[in-house]
Amino acid sequence: MTARPGNGPPFAQRPMTTKRENSKTGVAAEDPAGWLDDHGAILFQFAFGRLKNRELAEDLVQETMLSAVRSLSSFRADSSIRTWLIGILKNKIIDHLRQTRRAAALGIADADGFEETVLQRDFNRYGIWNRFLSNWAANPEELLEHDQLLAIFKECLEGLPEKARQAYLLKNFDAQESDEICNILGITTSHLWVLLHRARHGLRDCIEKRWSPIEDE
């Protein structure tokens, strides 16, 4: 259960920079005075990774911590404080996407040119493969243990067209339902399918290019 803030000195009397031991598992886990030191960098990098904007990411970290303080009583000790904070941050990011979806629909070029570069290059005018794919996914269990491959996956994810990337992250990282993603991004279901297809197709293409153990047969 949650520690009661009433025990011990009021938070505000503690120096904010104090490093406490056991910050992840110890009794002081819910002490917000140490959040910035313990989780600030992770939260910032998470937000920056999603939104690619420093100031926005910093603002959302601030909002997250303030909301967390206000709803501290809803924190349950069965999750870590970091997971809880990231959960709040995720909602802030989704709210932001929802608010800016109209601007985003106008502003973010959604994969313009991708059709020509990746999709059309792979197929001829009859829609048949232009090339033979090498057989690199024969041992998925083995491949999933390759840190290098997972690192390549992350790089490739970064390189996707922005709207396709957001759709893919909401779907595969935030486990949002399709209806909800459409709502957040302000798009139709068929548009979502196109974006997710672009994301997956683009990821496959990018991984194949970068993963050196892949050899043509």
Binding site: P10, A12, M16, A41, F48, A57, Q62, M65, L66
Partner: peptide, 28 residues
């Protein structure tokens, strides 16, 4: 993306302690 900027840290720190100052004495 690196780290939070020094300015952001400072700002969040002061916002957080202000929030805590108004909260910590209330009953849980």
């Amino acid at each position: 993306g690196g780290e939070l900027s020094a300015e952001a840290r400072e700002r969040i720190e002061s916002e957080l302690s202000r929030e805590l100052a108004t909260r910590c004495n209330k009953p849980n």
